[in-house]
Design a protein around this nucleic acid. Sequence first.
DNA 1: TTCAGTGCAAAAACTTTGCAGGAGG
DNA 2: CCTCCTGCAAAGTTTTTGCACTGAA
Lengths: 156, 156
Amino acid sequence: MKNQKAREEFEKFLKKEKHRITPERFEVMDYALGYDGHFGADELYVKMKSEHSNISRATVYNTLELLAQCDLLSKRNFGEHKSRYESNYGRKNHDHLICTNCGAIKEFTNSKIAKIVDEISRELGFEVSGYSFNIFGNCLKSDTCKNKLDTKHNIR
Amino acid sequence: MKNQKAREEFEKFLKKEKHRITPERFEVMDYALGYDGHFGADELYVKMKSEHSNISRATVYNTLELLAQCDLLSKRNFGEHKSRYESNYGRKNHDHLICTNCGAIKEFTNSKIAKIVDEISRELGFEVSGYSFNIFGNCLKSDTCKNKLDTKHNIR
DNA sequence: TTCAGTGCAAAAACTTTGCAGGAGG
DNA sequence: CCTCCTGCAAAGTTTTTGCACTGAA
């Protein structure tokens, strides 16, 4: 069975939160975890439809939210007029550099960031559940870029 | 004259970018810089309309973009289905803690962040124009909160 | 059996676009 | 006087909601 461990994790989450175990939810999970790179909710819905699923838009949106809640997906916003999701399954945490010129997205990791998050949360009395750290700029090699964004991009 | 220095800065930017100097642009600037806290583009439009401006939606959206480009405003996204703006005029840079429970937004500054941004950009050959750093969690004092967000909020 | 979840379509929320008229340079 | 900008309304994009039906527990 594909994504067996993810399935178990999702099922555990659904039970804990008293959500029902439905085939549709696992169908969305499989598509989401199988997607290569970042994707929008509607994008995934259209893809599933095009491959003859009879899933509904509402179910896709709802399920992606659940998958993000249980940390199998990350939900991100890079300044576009939509959210992007990406699989966390079998991947390590990372943050993003976004090229505002060509739209390329690069990943990076830096252990100091978690320390800062920790420091600030202690300072301000905050119980942290997560953070987002995006760096915007120009990748200086716009020819090899993919993952185009669709924004003017002065989000900070 | 209100916001005199900001006016001059905006005018300089408009000339440099070969945009026209129009009264509407300064009207939006005045409202934006005078707004207390974060605001959405449509929110500002509605406010201006309610105060008998005859500005158009398109002009508000367009002008806020320009003001963000010339750094008089910051454009932000806290995981909602919209962008928020906030005045930079006479304020120092800061990042945000967002309470996913009550929607409160707290500001913080930490000098290490800029260093990390610098480090990473050098490492990866990126010409940085800006970054966003948001921490999500629970502020543990939901009674004093304002600035409600309208999202389930698992953006990372 | 019960009610959360689903499919569908319509509505909502935010943003962008097309067009005709008006004003900045 | 040439366009860029504006106001207006309409359309576009992404997400949410309402409703009747279905199927998980």
